[in-house]
Amino acid sequence: MDIFFWPVTELLVWGFLSRYLEGTGLGGVNVVTVLLGALIFWDLLSQSQRAVSVVFLEEVWERNLLNIFVTPLKISEFLVSTVLIGLARIMLVGVVITIMAFFLYQFNIFQLGFALIPFVVNLLLFGWAIGLFATAIILRFGSAAQVLAFGLTFLLQPFSAVFYPVSALPQMAQYIAYLLPSTHVFEGMRQVINTGVFSWQQLGWTIIANVVFISLILWFFYSMFANVKEQGRLMKLD
């Protein structure tokens, strides 16, 4: 399965992208800004997701979960710690990527303006939530499900309108797209770049979608955790 995973999703993404570029006639100076901005933002999201899932997977690989869960540490504290570790990793990756983009393409992410910060924060939170979702699945199915830890965000990428506007998607896909917080982040980002106007509306949708997603995923995680304790699988995870 996983060998098709990357090629297919990449194909989708770049396919829609070219359609978009054809339509616009490829003119504007903004193309580089839009693409690189999108690329960096997307990377933040997937780093945020991966950090959470991999932290957890490492504990499974190391057969260390029982040691952790017999300490007085609460599950909520464990989750907060994954957020913090995720943030630390993102800082590192973010710095490197920003510097590379600047030197390779003379792309300065700060030109996008600090108005984008609320979008970035939401993107990180959404990445964390997806990471938590992957973690819940790994908790339930063991590291056989680890492909999710590394690639779950790529399933969402085609729907998140990262490199092209939602309008470039087929009708059905548009419905899914509008449910995702990430879509509103990228729509909002393009709007800032293209018109210079900060979209409170997109930010509003981002926050609403995020709250809904995070609540659902937290609920999912906790019920998976309870289920795994019920089935006695915590000690048998591998």
């Binding site: 504990e59 040691n67 007085p72």
Partner: peptide
């Protein structure tokens, strides 16, 4: 949490990082 603070556990089948 209060109980687990006063308890510890070891098994040959659990490892550390």
């Amino acid at each position: 949490e209060e109980i687990l603070n006063r308890v510890n556990f070891s098994s040959a089948y659990v490892a550390m990082p």
